[in-house]
Nucleic acid binder design. Structure first.
Length: 489
DNA sequence: ATGTAC
């Protein structure tokens, strides 16, 4: 090993295993080593905050297997890094709400169209205004559906099946969503009344922060055969929807963090950070949290479904054609913040694990039984949004992901500065004017401050993140898109 | 991310 192959950041040591793979050797109370998957350039950004320390802390979680892993877009989060993957034994390990994240099933879906960029040019302002007027966004309440108690119960229990029953989905949408849009382990009774109350008037709403709806054009195709299977080609218009489970998921996370801290104090005392609070596998709270989290997963899927279906109606008005004629079909919906029971090979043995992916995307290659039939022979689509001034990517689950990352890859570009700092560096209106005048990107937002917080300059280079994923073989580049219209909170 | 704190 040469000097170039070792990095010492304070008391944290990283050893290069090979290109883009850095290992933090096991020491002290660490149960497993940790790994950072990053280029030198991205590692230099990752080391700037508490990401590496949080990654090391995560290796202390009971039942952690193989490695705690940090993706190329990793940054500091609540307890567990955003861009982190940790797989714990589902019988002898634990489940940790902070390792899922507050925004349960924050994620993205991509809807295709058969429109070309040429057909949209000149209509950008009309389209962005119509989307903004019809898709609720911003903090607080107001959704596409004003839900009552029964509606929320149905959504939590049946996910996108509920949307289908109520005319907000078609069968084909279910066939192109993970779990067909319905987590079978959902337990609505484990979701507090307070969480349900917060969620009932947020069904079909974008929220705030980095959440958005973006109309994009496909600018590059890297793997022609896979793109063709996915139904993507250059110049095509697609729609990307990025949002989560709103106040409901947030409430589920905080409810269970509080309960688990109280009930499992011994386990908490054995961890280096209280924010990693975890319930032992098999305990009542582990089961309840898992059921509640799965219900929140359903809520987020329905949220994205309602927004997508409303978007079809908006396109119908703007383009004067039926959405079916515009072939506005769902490509796929991917979760960025969940824990899920999955079987993976560990030391030559198949074991059931809680795979925590926080700011990480499942990236299963061809052949995994969980994949819908449309993608079983090609591998699942992985959708990685960039900032509103940069491209986004469609990848395909890579052959090496099962071996390296429990079937996962990155989820986005990742911030480089805090929201507070961003507001000091940028002014929302100026950002909007520049995007429009220099790149023909039309942004409309509830708040100028949000635009400043999400300015393209506050994000890492998504091209570099995707390059690492592709070169590692965990997620293969298929296509790149570029923004046309963007609405946000 | 989030009725931006308990």
């Amino acid at each position: 090993m040469t000097d170039d192959d070792v990095k010492q950041f304070g008391d944290i040591r990283l050893e290069r295993v090979r290109e883009h793979v850095w290992e933090m050797p096991r020491e002290g109370e660490m149960r497993v080593p940790a790994r950072v998957l990053a280029s030198e350039q991205l590692l230099e950004q990752i080391r700037q905050d508490k990401t590496l320390e949080q990654l090391r802390n995560a290796t202390h979680l009971p039942g952690m297997t193989k490695h705690a892993i940090c993706m190329p877009d990793g940054h500091q989060g609540y307890g567990f890094p955003v861009g982190g993957v940790g797989a714990t034994d589902a019988e002898e390990g634990c489940i940790s709400p902070g390792s899922v994240g507050y925004d349960i099933n924050c994620g993205v879906r991509m809807m295709k169209t058969n429109l070309t960029y040429a057909e949209l040019e000149g209509k950008e302002e009309e389209l962005v205004d119509a989307l903004f007027a019809n898709v609720p966004s911003g903090l607080g309440g107001g959704g596409i559906v004003q839900g009552d108690v029964d509606a929320v119960e149905g959504v939590l229990d049946r996910g996108v099946d509920w949307a289908l029953e109520h005319g907000h989905a078609v069968e084909d949408d279910l066939a192109h969503c993970e779990d067909e849009g319905r987590r079978p382990d959902a337990d609505p009774d484990a979701v507090s009344q307070k969480a349900k109350d917060r969620g009932k008037n947020q069904l079909g709403s974008l929220g705030s922060g980095n959440h958005f709806l973006e109309v994009q054009r496909v600018t590059d195709v890297f793997r022609e055969d896979v793109a063709s299977e996915f139904g993507l080609e250059e110049d095509q218009i697609v729609v990307l929807i990025h949002c989560g489970s709103r106040g409901l998921g947030h409430q589920v996370c905080s409810d269970y963090l509080r309960k688990i801290e109280k009930e499992h104090g011994d386990l908490l005392d054995s961890l280096p950070d209280k924010e990693l609070a975890a319930a032992p596998a098999g305990s009542e709270l582990a089961e309840e949290y898992y059921g509640a989290m799965c219900a929140a997963i359903n809520f987020a899927w329905v949220n994205r479904q309602l927004i997508m279906h409303r978007t079809r109606r908006v396109f119908e008005r703007v383009f004067g054609r039926d959405w079916e004629a515009m072939e506005m079909d769902l490509l796929y919906d991917v979760a960025h913040n969940i824990a899920k029971k999955e079987v993976h090979e560990v030391d030559g043995e198949d074991r059931e694990l809680y795979v925590h992916r926080k700011g990480a995307t499942r990236a299963f290659p061809a052949g995994r039984p969980e994949l819908p039939s449309a993608y079983r022979d090609v591998g699942q689509p992985v959708i990685i949004p960039g900032s509103m001034g940069a491209g986004s990517y469609v990848l395909r689950g890579g052959e090496r992901s099962l071996d390296l990352t429990f079937g996962s890859t990155a989820h986005g570009a990742g911030r480089t500065m805090s929201r507070t700092q961003a507001k000091q560096e940028y002014w929302g209106e100026t950002v909007q004017d520049e995007l429009r005048d220099q790149q023909k990107i039309y942004v409309k937002a509830q708040s100028g401050a949000t635009v400043a917080e999400e300015a393209p300059g506050v994000y890492k280079d998504v091209d570099e993140v995707v390059r690492v994923s592709d070169e590692l073989g965990i997620g293969d580049k298929v296509a790149r898109t570029f923004p046309v219209c963007n609405i946000k909170g």
